[in-house]
Simulated assay, not measured.
Amino acid sequence: MIPPRRFYLIGGPMGVGKTTAARLLAERLPRSVLLDGDWCWDMRPFQVTEETKAMVLDNICHLLGNFLACSAFQSVVFCWVLHEQEILDHILSRLDTSGWETVPVSLVCSEAALRARLLADGEAGRRAPGTLERSLAYLPRYAALTSPLLDTTALAPEETAAALAALPGRDYEERGYAP
């Protein structure tokens, strides 16, 4: 039996472990490709305008669409903050996911764990000023999303990747997201 093609959409606040877990997940999956949405924001100077937001979203959808259309891939892993349902819905509405199990999930952790992770990242120079406050403000927003929550508070990155790999997929065509 041929395993299903799987498209992972991993959201969560900054510092929760999305990028690390997504990278580990992609390494363990067959014929995978990884896209971190932050890569589409890696601009200097960093500018959040209506124009740059639209461009980044368009670039993400374009890349994901190409990955999903490519027969070389069995697994597509996408991670990004994804803190609003409308962002996830918009991305899915622009993609042809037929033939793919879609696996949306939001990574969360306790406020104390998030604070500790971001402070350590800040001390190591891996986080911009203001990240802690923004991330803590985003954390409660994930409870309102339709994607399941995966609490990473007590999980090592490898354990998070294993838990992601074990999640059930969804057929988003049934929810009206087919193009």
Rank of each mutant, 00 (worst) to 15 (best):
V77C: 02
C40S: 13
G12R: 00
L132K: 07
H90G: 11
A69W: 00
L107K: 03
T97S: 14
D36P: 04
S93P: 07
E27W: 00
H83T: 10
R28V: 00
H90I: 09
L119R: 15
A124I: 04
G99H: 00
F46Q: 06
A22Q: 03
V16N: 04
E86N: 15
G99K: 05
L68M: 08
L68D: 02
A124P: 06
S98Y: 09
N59Q: 11
G17F: 08
E84K: 15
V48G: 05
Q74P: 13
L25F: 01
C70R: 12
L92P: 07
E51K: 08
D121M: 13
I60R: 00
H62Q: 14
V108Y: 01
N66I: 07
A128L: 12
R23N: 01
A120S: 10
E101Y: 08
R23E: 01
L29V: 12
L29F: 02
D121A: 12
I91E: 04
L63K: 11
C70Y: 13
L92G: 08
A120C: 05
E111N: 10
R134D: 15
R23M: 03
D36N: 14
A112I: 10
P13K: 06
N59P: 02
R31M: 12
G99A: 09
R31L: 12
E50N: 09
S32W: 03
L82E: 03
C79H: 04
T19K: 01
G122V: 06
G17W: 10
W80L: 05
K53V: 12
M55N: 10
E27M: 04
L34V: 05
C70H: 14
F73H: 08
T49I: 04
A120F: 04
K53Y: 06
C70W: 11
Q47Y: 11
Q47A: 15
W80F: 12
W41A: 07
G37D: 02
A69K: 13
R126H: 15
I87A: 11
S32E: 00
A26Q: 06
V103F: 03
L118K: 06
